[in-house]
Design a protein around this nucleic acid. Structure first.
Lengths: 199, 199
DNA sequence: CAAAATACCTACCGGTTGGTATGCTGTAGT
DNA sequence: ACTACAGCATACCAACCGGTAGGTATTTTG
């Protein structure tokens, strides 16, 4: 019988680290607290990850990236009508009122705000993820332009950058305000901005 | 000769704490590092402030609030033409390319992102400052509506909330991207949004 | 089946953290 | 000039931090 399942163990640690980092931030995240959730010890952690920083970067790449991809990139990438897809995403976000995501904020944005100034490796890796996101939105806008649904006089890349930034801004402010209504209002305004992009 | 100047000492500590918190965040900010900049010791710090948290809250109220007021609230509050004033502020921010503010981000937003989920006192105090900011912008928009310069069909308060959120979002993303050009483009898009509010 | 490598645990380490207890000193009030 | 207290320095503390050393048990490999 298999009592040891290293892959499973690794995933357990990653999941616990993700939760802890989401709540406390990376620097304030405690390895002891991460391990307290699991029934594992430091030996297991340091067997799978060389140090705390590597654990954090692994969380970004193996937890946050897939989640963000599933939630935001794929829907937009597939969409035939990009503006409608973006507005639908906003609508969905506003409705669900995801407790964790509203009070704790976007994990990607949280880490960018915290780590970009203090660690170059973190900054680069987070920027890659962010850039990918912007690229997907930009491509969607460009497809909209080609289809005559989106104004041709605007810079797709720059507009995409703004849309993602504004969304992150809205989520961030709502984290402070702690009111789903406030976020909904904010998302509504952003939807209004998107409306203004129509050809 | 006066060798002791308690007010001056207090300000010195506040300034050093502000710089350290701006760089590292509040939780990661070290009292030892704060005091290393000044030539003071823990005795001085704990004479003027009961604990680290009180120091942090004092920084918010006595350093960040006045700075933000001077930089963003007052200009907007005085402006006759609110939309033009907001756009001028964006323009100014984009031009100066303030090193510290671009790579380290907005001190208010940084603290909101970090502290809102983990400390209710911080959240409330930061939210007061943020709310004041939104209120000033909202009043400016309302004045614009009264003057017939701004569309009357929009909710001034909600629009103001979005404008401030989007601005913070743009600053935050630029902190990660570390390119003044990216922030300029983002600010440009926000200016475009403001343009769409004209009557 | 033996040997080697992997997976994980326990105990511990040096360093840093925020915080405190105590003592010296300049200075204002009388 | 004496007192009393504010203003600060020094020395120290327990708790916690990330990380390591060394052992044990379970696999995989030859």
């Amino acid at each position: 019988m298999n009592t040891r399942q290293p892959d499973q163990t690794r995933q357990t640690i990653l999941a616990a680290a993700y939760a802890e980092i989401h709540r406390q931030g990376f620097q304030a995240a405690s390895l002891a607290r991460i391990l307290a959730d699991t029934s594992l010890t430091k030996g297991a952690l340091y067997h799978h990850f060389p140090d705390k920083k590597a654990l954090g970067l692994a969380v970004v790449e193996e937890v946050i990236r897939p989640e963000l991809t599933a939630a935001m990139l794929t829907p937009v990438a597939r969409a035939e009508h990009p503006l409608r897809a973006l507005q639908a995403l906003l609508e969905a976000k506003a409705q669900t009122a995801d407790e964790a995501l509203l009070t704790l904020g976007c994990p990607l944005n949280n880490l960018m705000q915290e780590m970009s100034p203090v660690d170059e490796d973190f900054r680069r890796q987070l920027n890659r993820l962010f850039t990918d996101w912007v690229a997907v939105v930009a491509e969607a806008l460009a497809r909209g332009q080609a289809a005559g649904e989106v104004r041709r006089d605007l810079d797709a890349r720059q507009t995409a950058y703004f849309v993602v930034s504004a969304l992150e801004g809205c989520i961030g402010m709502s984290k402070n305000t702690q009111s789903p209504a406030a976020f909904r209002g904010c998302a509504l305004q952003l939807a209004g901005f998107l409306e203004g992009l129509k050809a």
